[in-house]
Nucleic acid binder design. Structure first.
Length: 350
DNA sequence: AAGCCGGGGAT
DNA sequence: ATCCCAGGCTT
């Protein structure tokens, strides 16, 4: 055991958080927690983990769930492909491996939603196999430890960091070592202004010596933010029904539900919305009243800004015309059973 | 290799 | 209000 491995292990022993998936790190527990924690902080994912375990204590039960229910349980956590893949992965493990996760890195990466990071996490934490994890925390710890200025978003960077993580790995205690690396990144070696004075690795940290801590890691990735205008139509019928829309394209919120939507490139006034062909095909000459126009909701995602308004439309007689394209009537009281994006949830609870 | 996919916390 | 975080899949 190297000095760094020992220092790290001791620090972890004294500082690690008590987390439910650490109590009994079965492959199912480790897998579920890792999928939830991809792009998600422990503080946000914790309650979701507990709810999933309570609802589906074993993989076999989860494999039998409906996608709608899994998405409903996932609601608010974001990156919903993780939830769809979670269910597919459970079914895959059930069918291909008799309900038991394979103790093999390559086979693990063949599972839906399980990439290099998650496969290494399951392999090391659940099966004690010597695979080093490289997540955002590990990128940061290693970039500072070795004062590396290679961008973590470049192919060369990914290779370099993976090699260093593998070199540092305590091959006798891979699960403990990996968790310690990530915990150090989460609690001590934080992105902004870490308190290096109390860091257990400060004497070995090159970025600390070079005073480049706040410039590590380097990330050259840049993304541009798209602005979209969502004009939602919330129909109300005489018998308290409304029209819902199941999102189905390769767009945000796939397989979640929202309302009939008229999207535009620019802001539209209410009058302009009511003149749109997309609107008229719902009313087809029937009389209606715009009962309410909501405030503007500005919903910021990483890669786009949604500027949304909700027009509550009361039809004086009959139903709105809906034809195909994933639109359907549903009683307003059933709304709560549908998985919806945060934006819709905010509107409904407003 | 590059682009897409949420939402929340820190500042 | 602005910046930051980030694994896997698809193209």
């Amino acid at each position: 055991m190297t000095g760094l491995q020992e220092t790290l292990a001791n620090w972890f022993g004294e500082n690690k958080r008590e987390l439910p998936w650490r109590t009994s790190p079965t492959p199912y527990h480790v897998w579920l927690s890792e999928i939830i924690l991809q792009q998600t902080r422990v503080s946000q994912g914790l309650e979701y983990y507990n709810r999933f375990i309570e609802r589906w204590p074993e993989l076999q039960r989860l494999a039998q769930a409906s996608e709608k229910e899994v998405l409903k349980m996932w609601q608010g956590l974001g990156y919903y492909s993780r939830a769809r893949n979670l269910l597919q992965c459970a079914q895959q493990v059930q069918q291909q491996y008799g309900g038991l996760f394979p103790a093999d890195y390559k086979k693990l990466t063949g599972l839906k939603g399980v990439g290099p990071y998650t496969a290494a996490a399951i392999a090391s934490i659940a099966f004690d196999l010597p695979h080093a994890v490289v997540d955002g925390n590990v990128y940061r710890v290693i970039a500072r430890l070795f004062d590396i200025d290679t961008s973590i978003s470049s192919t060369a960077g990914k290779k370099q960091f993976a090699q260093l993580a593998d070199m540092l790995l305590d091959r006798d205690h891979p699960g403990l070592h990996n968790q310690a690396m990530m915990e150090l990144g989460a609690l001590q070696c934080v992105p902004k202004n870490p308190d290096c004075a109390v860091c257990p690795l400060k004497t070995q940290c090159l970025a600390f010596a070079h005073e480049t801590v706040n410039e590590r890691p380097v990330n050259t990735k840049k993304l541009q933010i798209r602005v979209r205008y969502f004009n939602y139509l919330v129909f109300k019928t005489d018998n308290s029904q409304t029209v819902l829309h199941k999102r189905n394209n390769n767009d945000i919120w796939k397989n979640l539900y929202d309302f009939p939507l008229i999207e535009s490139e620019t802001h539209l006034s209410v009058d302009e919305i009511l003149k749109q062909d997309a609107f008229l095909k719902f009313t087809r000459g029937k009389s209606f009243i715009v009962e309410h126009v909501s405030r503007t909701f500005t919903h910021k995602l990483t890669h786009q800004t949604i500027i949304a308004r909700f027009l509550q439309i009361k039809l004086s007689d009959g139903m709105p015309c809906i034809e195909g394209n994933n639109l359907f009537l549903t009683p307003e009281k059933d709304m709560a059973s549908y998985p919806v994006p945060r934006l819709i949830d905010l509107y409904l609870n407003n």
